[in-house]
Amino acid sequence: MDPQLSLRRLEIFRLVVEERSVTRAAEVLLVAQPAVSAQLRALEGWVGAKLFARQGNRLVLTEAGERTERWAREVLAGAAQVRRDVGDLASGETGRVIIASSMAVGTYIVPPIMAEVGRQRPRADITVSISRPEEVVHAVESGECDMAVLNWDQRRLPENIASELLGSFSLSVYAAPGLVPDGARLSAAEALRLPLVGAPDTVVYQRNLVTQLRAAGHEEPRFLLRLGHAEAMKNAAVANGWALIAPAYAVRAELVAGALVELAVDDLQLEEHVTLIHRDDKHFSPLQSAAVAAIREGVTATAERDLLETHHE
């Protein structure tokens, strides 16, 4: 018995079944009839039973042949599906991508970018998880995610992590309407004496903010309340008539709704850096490469939009 079974042999068998004739199958395949007969004998040797019986001038399937034909149909259909699936993977239409992100970046920047990727590739499996930056870096290093987009404070990353600065975003002072008279221009010291909502000292965003303030010679403001997410910070500022320091992308909805206004502040130049990181030995699938390209383009577009929409008079 021939131990080898090829898809080609099953395809020839199925064609003979469809044509009910070895001769006609050979004509379709443009091969000699003995070549088709040899393939059938080899398949019969593999299954250990006769597959055809002759009724007059026609070939009909035996009971073993009927069972083999059903199985061959399933095998060939499965093989075709595998080819389609692998082809889709190669084109980036399917597959999986897991992106980790820090709080604000993962809330306001990454989701709309990846939503567009998902809209263009509805069969792709796309996940965006949100954690503290240190946990995000660990997830990348351990291989739990394919890449990460985060606000990083330029501390040294592990040696096996590659990083790419995607964009820099200005941080401005935003306040509930009425906290500062309309049209007022504040000095940096005046702005920093406003009732401010901040983040915990352990949060990268807050460390980055305080480091820049100290480097510019400003005293660290006294934050009335420290909250761990931009949404909570904004809600507290709006509800209590307070202020906060944030990137424009994080407060866009509140600015449009009039719940917050940007304050004109002199000599207060603050920014945050949004970085893409991944293992330096990471091999990106076509889908993951498409995600990286979309993130690069999306972060750049967000930075440009913030620059256009943010005015300091």
Rank of each mutant, 00 (worst) to 15 (best):
M1E: 08
L7F: 10
R9I: 07
R9T: 15
I12Y: 06
R14F: 01
V16Q: 00
E18S: 05
S21F: 02
S21P: 04
R24T: 06
A25G: 09
V31Y: 00
A32Y: 12
S37H: 08
A42P: 06
E44C: 04
G48Y: 12
R58E: 15
L61R: 03
W71L: 14
A72Q: 01
A72H: 05
R73C: 06
R73L: 04
R73T: 05
R73I: 01
A77W: 01
Q81H: 11
V86S: 13
D88R: 13
A90G: 14
A100G: 15
S101A: 15
I109H: 00
P112W: 05
G118A: 10
R119F: 14
R121W: 02
R121P: 05
R121H: 09
P122W: 06
D125Y: 11
D125S: 06
I126F: 03
I126Y: 01
I130T: 10
V137P: 00
H138R: 14
H138M: 11
S142E: 12
E144G: 02
D146I: 03
M147E: 00
A148N: 13
V149H: 09
V149W: 02
L150K: 04
N151E: 12
D153E: 04
D153G: 10
N160W: 09
N160E: 07
A162Y: 08
E164G: 15
L165V: 13
L165G: 00
P177H: 08
P181Y: 11
R185P: 00
A188P: 01
E190M: 11
E190A: 15
G198A: 07
Y205A: 02
Q206V: 06
Q206W: 01
V210D: 04
T211R: 14
A216Y: 07
L224M: 03
L224Q: 04
H229R: 10
A230P: 02
A232S: 11
A232G: 08
K234Q: 11
N235D: 15
N235K: 14
A237L: 06
A239V: 08
A246S: 10
V251E: 10
L255S: 08
V256T: 10
A264T: 08
V265K: 01
D266R: 07
Q269W: 02
H273I: 01
V274F: 06
T275Y: 08
L276K: 06
H278P: 11
H283W: 09
A293T: 04
A294S: 10
I295G: 05
R296T: 02
E297G: 12
G298R: 12
T300Q: 03
T302W: 02
A303G: 08
A303K: 07
R305N: 05
L307C: 09
L307M: 02
H311Q: 02
H311K: 14
H312T: 03
